[in-house]
Amino acid sequence: MINSKSISLFFSLFGFWLLMSGHYTVLITSLGVVSCLLCVYLTIKGNFLDNETIPIYFFPRLIQYTIWLIKEIFMSNITTAKVILSKSEEPELFSVKATQKTNEGKVTYANSITLTPGTVTTQIKDNVFEVHALTKEFGDDVRSSEMDRMVTWLEKGK
């Protein structure tokens, strides 16, 4: 019952509580601790606490992946702005295969594709993603499956 998942859930809830509160007297903070504990208890009781809510094996490599993703998003933002201003869009639709094993990995990959402007995941069936790309270059970026390798690397954990 007390494992790394429930502890990390408690600390993220309590951090959010501290962020929203703004009053840090002893009484109010202890009430916050009690309400966070109640939330964690209800989560455990309702069997919501699994790999899907807290994918804890992502955490060791998450910071490095986030930095890589932000760099990637910045580059494709510049390219998308160029495409919009120079009227050179040639949209295309294609499918790629994902190599992730778990559902969390697939969701991370699909969301990373959608978060990068220029590519959007439109449909998912098993491990085949249908992707819409703004130009051919964006499509080649997805087809070269660099992001796929990064997410698979993230999924493996430490």
């Binding site: 998308t80 919009i84 009227k87 869009e89 959608t114 978060l115 402007p117 220029g118 959007v120 819409h132």
Partner: peptide, 19 residues
Amino acid sequence: IRLPDVFSRIHAAGMIDTA
């Protein structure tokens, strides 16, 4: 405004949301 269909416009909306 300028892009041709809803799928292309999602890219523009994504740009507003991220960058």
